[in-house]
């Protein structure tokens, strides 16, 4: 229980620091949002509107930094992240809220597939090392060694352009209305297949290698020999004794990789023009949309934090040695 409270306190502190940084950094940037917006619109906004924009953005009040900070927190608790410049006047929260499910769905599922697949293959070739199956290693490592965007471009060239099996971009058939119908879900899976494939291809090697090496290490542990000597059935020795212990480091890196689901897929979403957080962030950066960037960063930071929490608790659940004796 004390462990739980201490972890929660630690993460609350980390979250506070991250959010505060998120608040400070844009204020250190030169220029002001109104000038930036006027500049972006290139004369399409009447210069007389400048004052009303200032009022709209809340820049007319002469607030101290502390007042701004408390106001920022108050807005944050209301889920208000401000207005996007690019999609003016759509709230940032809406844009992020629309993009997030796509990223979490696509990359999340792909990450889980890569983890499960890589771990299973790692168990198999780690247990029976020195067979032909070891040949999987260099092949899969090749895919994770080549640049990510390149894998994406190659899959597009092969499967979308040449073979025409899958669409090259987008996240669903634009002719459909988003709804929970079989047709729409099918379309989402169809459009998501190639991006998911590149994520799996380029990350599965890490899981295979990690699991295989841990399996090799754990297999020579005495308790595995004892499990053999006890006459336990083969699958019980492999899964219950060898893999059960070998998976511990995998689980924490899996939880951490979940944290990067949101932030780490920028390139994939750019290559496939997939409407996720990465693509939104890319757009925000290229159009100097500070509120949107800030919103994206906040979501990315928080998701890494949440993943850390999951990793922490998963490890405690799986490894009794990390538990404090109460």
């Amino acid at each position: 229980m004390t462990f739980l409270l201490r972890r929660i306190a630690f993460y609350a502190l980390t979250a506070w620091a991250a959010i505060t940084l998120n608040f400070i950094v844009p204020r250190l940037l030169p220029g002001d949002p109104v000038t930036a917006l006027m500049g972006r619109m290139q004369g399409r906004i009447d210069s007389n509107a400048e004052q009303s924009l200032r009022v709209l953005f809340g820049l007319d009040q002469d607030l101290s930094l502390w007042q701004q900070y408390t106001a920022y927190w108050a807005m944050l608790f209301r889920g208000d992240l401000g207005l996007s410049f690019t999609h003016f006047p759509t709230p940032v929260a809406d844009i992020v809220g629309q993009a997030l499910p796509w990223t979490v769905g696509l990359v999340g599922v792909a990450t889980i597939i890569a983890f499960v697949l890589g771990t299973l293959v790692g168990i198999a070739i780690g247990w029976r090392r020195g067979t032909w199956a070891d040949g999987i290693l260099p092949v899969s490592t090749f895919f994770s060694a080549v640049p990510y965007f390149w894998v994406g471009l190659i899959t597009i060239t092969v499967f979308a352009v040449n073979l025409r099996w899958f669409p090259s971009n987008g996240s669903y058939d634009r002719g459909l209305v988003p709804a929970f119908t079989g047709e729409f879900v099918g379309s989402v899976i169809y459009y998501g297949f190639l991006p998911a494939l590149t994520v799996v291809l380029s990350s599965v090697a890490g899981w295979i290698l990690g699991m295989r090496n841990m399996m090799v290490t754990v297999s020579s542990e005495d308790y595995v020999t004892v499990a053999h000597a006890k006459g336990l059935p083969g699958h019980q020795v492999v899964l219950g004794y060898a893999a059960r212990n070998a998976i511990l480091p995998q689980v924490s890196s899996f939880a951490l990789s979940l944290g990067f689901v949101v932030g780490g897929t920028l390139i994939m979403e750019m290559v496939f023009s997939y409407q996720g957080i990465g693509y939104t962030l890319y757009q925000a950066v290229s159009t100097h949309d500070y509120p949107l960037m800030q919103g994206c960063f906040l979501v990315i930071t928080l998701s890494v934090l949440v993943a850390n929490i999951i990793a922490d608790f998963a490890y405690v659940a799986l490894d009794p040695r990390t538990r404090k004796e109460d």
Binding site: D222, A227, N245, R321
Partner: peptide, 9 residues
């Protein structure tokens, strides 16, 4: 190995 013969988890 008395220490390592039991599975720690």
């Amino acid at each position: 190995g008395a220490m390592s013969s039991l599975n720690p988890v």
